[in-house]
Design a protein around this nucleic acid. Structure first.
Lengths: 264, 264
DNA sequence: TATTGTGAATCTATTCACAGCT
DNA sequence: AGCTGTGAATAGATTCACAATA
């Protein structure tokens, strides 16, 4: 309604549940570590422990890929690495552009996990002319005027947005218009994209807030039975406007939700 | 089993489903934006659109907090901001330490979303003596020898790990031993922690791999019916060891899964 | 009249537990 | 004997659809 553009395309893909897809990279990492230690086979129990999940879940997950194990023995490490890599599409090369080369963008550019596993940083893009040409993690930054050209020339289909929140939507629009169909968004904004474009979000502030919630519960539990804190038992059910206290002492920063990017 | 320490403590908290908790920060952000524009009330439909969820889900989520809306009218923005903030524990101050001040750590230190919403960067900690005393985002870096002292003095209960994967577990152990009970982990490792300690993980490489999976599906769909790619129809069901091709051309970087941190 | 709050229905994910295979 | 693969059971999350109500 709001923008006329929707979001959330994928739910289940080719029969593989989304929750399973999200865990495959975890298994892959554990398997890669075993592979490096030349471990030939592994049981669901061992692998599950290494990946931090329970073994029934792991077996169920693998069952969606096919019957790749051997009863009484376990899984062949190399073979599983191959199968999962293939399922995830990591046997091909994925050129990626990173837009917004502040601290975060620079961190991403230098991230080892990017370079391995089939991802290749095809370009770093920033709106600040002062950044243009300067190498970050060995890759020269290009100006955002050339965004469309870069996407087209390198056949980029995955874009990473590490810009301030204020420009994230317009950067997103340009990426999508230029042909990008998957976006990893670090800016604390809800992006609207057309159907067929995937967006994943990484939001530091949200993660912290979730931790704070649980942290608060722990603190509350320590004290009285199930009351969160003595003060504020349960305020009036449905007050009129401006009924609530400001609640946040001197916390002023109006939103302030800008990612750690200093495009200058 | 492996380490004798477990993980995953929380499933549902004080009657609020975990999935709901994870969305509260999203609602809070949308509400804060409305609040800044001095919008007095908002309907579930409008707020849901702003937060990128559907309105039934939003209403259900809010119903776990209590009956804070007014039928026929909507929700009072300020009041909801207060209620959600309180529920998330953001009406109190949460001192946070960041360990590992590379590019990523520096990005986190300067992150606006940290400073707002009740989080305060109490200290930056790095193992590199050359970093000690140097200010990052206006905060002087302290040496990791003093980790325990810093945690104790500031009463820190939330720690952020932005170190290389290789040292993440030992940093984690020290944080936990010093009293930290919530950890946000950016290192690509599964951390083992005792019961009662919450860990949340942010993993760039995993997010990208999930995108690649969907991207691959799109590409496959475009072409033939439901075949992913012509080559590799379905390899032998259960081969013996080393039966699978290396599959990853020249991808050598052994793991390479080190976050974008250069502690030197 | 417009919009919330929520039971009931549905869909998704996890876990159990054991048959089936090596 | 040991371990996978999977139906069946359970738990959790989302969506529907409408009664309640300001």
């Amino acid at each position: 309604m709001a923008t006329g553009r929707t979001h959330r395309p994928a739910t289940r893909s080719r029969g593989i549940p989304e929750a399973t897809v999200a865990r495959l990279p975890l298994y892959l990492r554990a398997l890669t570590a075993l592979s490096e230690r030349s471990v030939p086979t592994v049981s669901s129990e061992e692998l599950a422990a290494a990946a931090g999940v329970n073994s029934a879940k792991l077996r169920k997950d693998f069952s969606y890929l096919g019957s790749y194990g051997t009863r009484g023995v376990g899984y062949d490490v190399e073979y599983l690495v191959y199968q999962i890599s293939r399922e995830l599409g990591l046997t091909q090369d994925w050129p990626v552009v990173i837009v917004g080369i502040g601290n975060l963008g620079a961190a991403l550019a230098g991230y080892g996990g990017f370079a391995s596993r089939g991802f290749r940083v095809a370009a770093l893009i920033d709106a600040d002319p002062a950044m243009t040409g300067r190498p970050v993690a060995g890759i020269p930054v290009q100006h955002s005027d050339d965004l469309e050209k870069i996407i087209a020339e390198d056949g980029v289909s995955i874009g990473v947005i590490a810009t301030p929140a204020g420009v994230a939507q317009q950067v997103c629009d340009r990426l999508v218009a230029a042909g990008v169909t998957s976006i990893l968004n670090f800016a604390p904004t809800v992006l609207s994209v057309p159907d067929g474009v995937d967006v994943r979000k990484v939001d530091l502030s949200i993660e912290l807030q979730i931790l704070a919630f649980h942290e608060q519960r722990k603190a509350g539990e320590e004290a009285g039975a199930d009351s969160a804190r003595p003060a504020a038992p349960v305020p009036p059910p449905a007050p009129r406007a401006t009924a609530a206290p400001a609640a946040d002492g001197g916390r002023k920063g109006p939103d302030g939700d800008v990612p750690a990017v200093m495009p200058a």
